[in-house]
């Protein structure tokens, strides 16, 4: 087994791994986190305003709920990930071609055609969706009960929520950004404690499996490491 330069010996990981592997959720994250980050309630957003933050907290909590096996979006701090992504060059579509003329009505198969950046889509779509929740369910999304929230998200996913064509990719953005935050390296703010990796059995940034190709049908035993050297 190759040891990584500057990292504790991987052999030592083996010893802890049997236990580490069985751990999910809070326990694993408590073990892995060197320094507990501020709670989501105290987190100061970089991009999202108060109402947007409340929406993202509530929506991601339904997209990846806490109940059942495995961590949810809130335990893994997915909202922090989304906020930071929108504040950064992804949110402002720095790498994308954004010159006009725009054809937001074009068929979805033609790709991103709205004049808005991802951050602008969130900014305009959240109040529009909240207004729809008000008129259809009597309250903004964050204030609905979980069951009604699920129904509202189902309507959003099925295109039943009237959104202008500039905003029509909101659902797919929200869902993909949520899953990104769940599975990305923790340095981006989500996947706290690598809990999602522990849950599914992905070893993260280990990236050294020389002896493994021919270990057929044997479950890989080691827990994940992150880019910054965290272990879980």
């Amino acid at each position: 087994m190759t040891d990584l330069p500057g990292y504790p010996s991987r052999r030592n990981f083996l010893k802890g791994s049997a236990a580490g592997f069985a751990l999910t959720g809070i326990a694993a994250s408590a073990e892995a986190q060197v320094e507990a980050p501020v709670s989501l309630d105290e987190y100061e957003t970089e991009y999202l305003n108060g109402a947007e933050w409340a929406f993202i907290m509530a929506a991601t909590a339904r997209l990846i709920p806490s109940e059942g096996d495995g961590p949810g979006a809130l335990e893994t701090r997915v909202p922090v990930f989304i906020d930071r992504q929108l504040a950064g060059d992804y949110g402002s579509a720095d790498d994308w071609y954004m010159e006009g003329p725009h054809a937001p009505d074009a068929e979805p198969a033609r790709g991103w055609q709205t004049p808005l950046t991802p951050a602008e889509v969130y900014r305009q779509a959240i109040p529009a969706f909240d207004a729809w929740c008000q008129s259809s369910h009597g309250a903004s999304f964050a204030e609905l009960d979980a069951e009604t929230q699920d129904a509202a998200l189902t309507s959003l996913s099925e295109g039943e929520v009237e959104l202008s064509s500039e905003l029509r990719d909101f659902w797919s953005l929200l869902l993909s950004n949520t899953k990104e935050g769940y599975f990305a390296d923790p340095q981006y703010g989500g996947n706290a404690g690598m809990q999602s990796w522990v849950y599914i059995g992905f070893p993260g940034a280990r990236a050294a499996y020389r002896e493994w190709p021919e270990r057929h049908n044997i479950e890989y035993p080691l827990g994940p490491v992150s880019i910054s050297g965290e272990r879980a």
């Binding site: 997209l63 990846i64 059942g68 096996d69 495995g70 949810g72 998200l153 949520t178």
Partner: peptide
């Protein structure tokens, strides 16, 4: 998405 998705990734990854 939702609980069914989370259950699915745990089961099938």
């Amino acid at each position: 998405w939702g609980a069914g998705w989370k259950e699915g990734i745990g089961r099938w990854y």
